[in-house]
Amino acid sequence: MSRGVPAVEDEEEVPGSEQSVSAPVTQEEPERELTHEEFDPKGTLALILTYFAVLAIMWVFMYFVEFLGNDLIVVG
């Protein structure tokens, strides 16, 4: 494990959990390993569905209120 500084004693290593070189040295280590099968990105799904809703609402507002509600629609 490379930290370049005296490290807190490691317990069980999580593979790929080497400390980022730009992180504070006191940063805590990952505490468990999650495989592809064990990991369901439900937080990601929740965030991205929120994003979808924001996009849809903003699009409707921009197109139908800001754009089509504007003066001098180009018709030819």
Binding site: Y63, F67, L68, I73, V74, V75, G76
Partner: peptide, 9 residues
Amino acid sequence: GAVGVGVTM
């Protein structure tokens, strides 16, 4: 917008 409203480019 193009067909229904008639906005042309």
